[in-house]
């Protein structure tokens, strides 16, 4: 990680650090919006399956000389659609399908990365991320994803909340709930690919999960939870980055461990009642 732990002013003078802060902000919006929906709709394990399947796409794309992010995005999107079409009432089968996707995705990715000729890619950077190795195209991808999510939220936010809250009731009103379910998984898939650069595939699900869980202890309304989750994610990513400099540790795991500590602390926050 960093060679030295200089002051914040020194760090901000560095281009790669400023890029990292921008990426953290963009990722935090994804965590706040998409993570909240993923947690409320209880899609965390499915998002985990999609994230690990994406690693297979990344490996194949790397081996084929293509952009690894595109490979990850394609497989994540395909996995999201496939899981979205599975019958949710057969829970055990769905659970097994996620497990298979999880393991096979990782195995495919590792095999193809192993087969990649020449200098071996930095496997750890993909598994655990390295926010300091971002390229301009990484930032552009993150900005596009954030813009798409915000437009979607403004256009169909209420319907997405309705499906996340009570899919059956939404279906009875004539909403195409399967399509909305797939849309939610696609949002999770895109978020996973963006978060890949930040904390890596293994830990991406943690950033989609920890901030909303913490936010649910701090805020009561949906909008409040989304805003709080965004703020918490930003605090975790930036705070984790600075802490990783200070402790000379990899940034991704430090962000996630900071989140775990914050989640434990959030359990101590008393719930306020709106009733007299």
């Amino acid at each position: 990680m960093a060679e030295s732990a200089g002051g914040l002013g020194d760090l901000l003078a560095l281009d790669f650090f400023r890029d990292a802060l921008v990426a953290a902000l963009l990722a935090s919006v994804l965590c706040g919006v998409v993570g909240t929906l993923v947690v409320l709709k209880r899609l965390v394990s499915i998002a985990g399956g999609v994230a690990h399947a994406a690693f297979g796409g990344l490996g194949v794309a790397y081996w084929a000389g293509a952009d690894p992010r595109l490979g990850a995005l394609a497989v994540a999107a395909l996995s999201a659609v496939g899981l979205g079409f599975l019958d949710r009432e057969r829970v055990r089968r769905l659970d097994a399908a996620i497990g298979v996707l999880w393991a096979v995705g990782m195995a495919v990715g590792l095999v193809f990365l192993h087969w990649t000729p020449g200098y071996a890619p930095d496997l750890l950077a993909y598994l655990f991320g390295n926010i300091l190795l971002l390229t301009p195209s990484d930032l552009a991808l993150a900005a596009a994803a954030v813009a798409a999510v915000l437009v979607l939220l403004a256009w169909r936010g209420r319907e997405l909340v309705a499906v996340a809250f009570d899919e059956e009731a939404a279906r009875l009103q004539g909403l195409p709930t399967r399509a909305y379910g797939i849309l939610l998984l696609m949002l999770a898939a895109v978020s996973v690919v963006v978060l890949l650069q930040l904390v890596g595939i293994v830990l991406a699900v943690a950033l989609l999960t920890l901030p909303p869980l913490i936010a649910l202890r701090l805020a009561r309304s949906i909008a409040g939870v989304v805003v709080a989750a965004t703020a918490v994610c930003l605090a975790l990513t930036v705070g984790g980055l600075l802490l990783s400099f200070a402790l000379d540790l990899p940034s991704g795991p430090v962000m996630v461990l900071s989140g775990a500590v914050a989640l434990a602390a959030a359990q101590l926050v008393p719930r306020r009642s709106t009733r007299a």
Binding site: L40, Q173, I222
Partner: peptide
Amino acid sequence: AFDRAFPLRVAEMVGLGLL
């Protein structure tokens, strides 16, 4: 069929009947 911990107010929940 829903999670009672879902962060919705009563009026918001009833309003979802008007989608």
